[in-house]
Simulated scan of single mutants.
Amino acid sequence: MRGRSDEQGRALLDALLEGRSEPELAARAASGLGLPERGRYAVVVLRDGGGGTAGTAMYADGLRFVRRRRGDREIVVVSLGDRDPAGLAALMVRWCPGPGGIGPVADGLAELGTARRLAEVALLTCPPGTTGIVRLEERLPAALLVSQPELSARLVSDVFGPLLALDPADRALLVRTLEAWLECGGSAGRAAGRLYCHRNTVLNRLRRLERLTSRSLTRPRELIEMTLALDAFRLTAPQA
């Protein structure tokens, strides 16, 4: 009887994750799973699960995890209690390297559908071939891009059009230089150290990039365009 009750609770949890909102659905799921209806929850969506049996409850670091499988994704519902969700990604990678996405905190079981959908968006901000588990709050600009794929493709074409016509090795060199420069806060010297080249080499590559894109890295609006186009390109570029 207990096993049947657990299975019913998990089926109700699946319905909540799908975004269904029938009357008393959250209350019945809470009763079936022994979870608080009004508690704080995080939803994690993993592209590759961590092994084991989906559907089982787990406990780690004082948190309760309930795992579910949906197609090629594994969904983990985490009962946070009063814990800060900021450390959840680091805890999750001990079990699964990712890639994975974490949605915003849901204030109750009834909000799990929205949290799951936004966790899926966070997962989409992980570039192909990468690992790691990211929070939506850390990837909002990229989340906007993956939520509008047609506009993102237009942005890449408009900003990086001439760059895309280059030899792949030449294009990759300029893209990596721009990435390093941005990651180093706009410091050509620090970017040069990361790229193992001279500072003037970095500056020359950036000037060439400006000529190709007809945009200046010193103009804030054009820099925003370049940065967003770079994110969109990284999220869609095929892996070598």
Rank of each mutant, 00 (worst) to 15 (best):
M1R: 12
G3L: 07
R4D: 03
D6F: 07
D6V: 08
E7F: 04
Q8M: 09
L12C: 05
L12M: 11
L16V: 14
L16P: 00
L17P: 12
G19A: 10
G19Q: 10
R20K: 11
L25K: 05
A26R: 01
A29I: 07
S31I: 00
G32V: 07
G32L: 04
L33E: 07
E37W: 01
E37G: 04
Y41N: 14
V44Y: 07
R47V: 03
D48T: 11
G49S: 12
G50N: 02
A54D: 07
G55N: 03
G55D: 02
A57F: 15
A60R: 13
R64H: 09
F65T: 06
V66E: 15
V66A: 13
R67L: 14
R67N: 13
R67A: 14
R68Q: 14
R70S: 13
G71V: 03
G71K: 08
E74F: 06
E74K: 04
V78R: 09
L80F: 10
G81A: 08
D84L: 03
A90F: 05
L91E: 13
M92F: 02
V93K: 06
G98E: 12
G100S: 10
G101C: 07
G108A: 11
A110Y: 07
T114Q: 14
A115G: 09
A119H: 01
A119G: 09
A122Y: 11
L123C: 06
P127R: 00
P127Q: 00
P128S: 11
P128I: 12
T130F: 07
T131P: 02
I133E: 01
V134Y: 15
L136G: 09
L136N: 08
L136R: 04
E138C: 01
R139K: 12
A142S: 15
L145C: 06
L151I: 13
A153N: 01
A153W: 00
L155G: 01
S157C: 00
D158E: 08
F160V: 02
P162K: 10
P162R: 13
P162C: 09
L163T: 07
L166E: 09
L166I: 03
D167V: 00
D170H: 15
L174E: 08
R176Y: 00
L178V: 10
A180L: 02
A180D: 01
G189I: 02
R190K: 05
R194D: 02
Y196E: 04
C197H: 02
H198C: 07
R199Y: 12
V202N: 12
V202I: 14
L203K: 13
R207C: 02
L209W: 03
L212P: 12
T213A: 05
T213Q: 01
R215F: 01
S216M: 06
R221Y: 05
R221A: 13
I224Y: 04
E225V: 04
M226G: 02
A229M: 04
A229R: 06
A232R: 05
F233V: 11
A237M: 10
P238L: 11
Q239M: 08
Q239H: 07
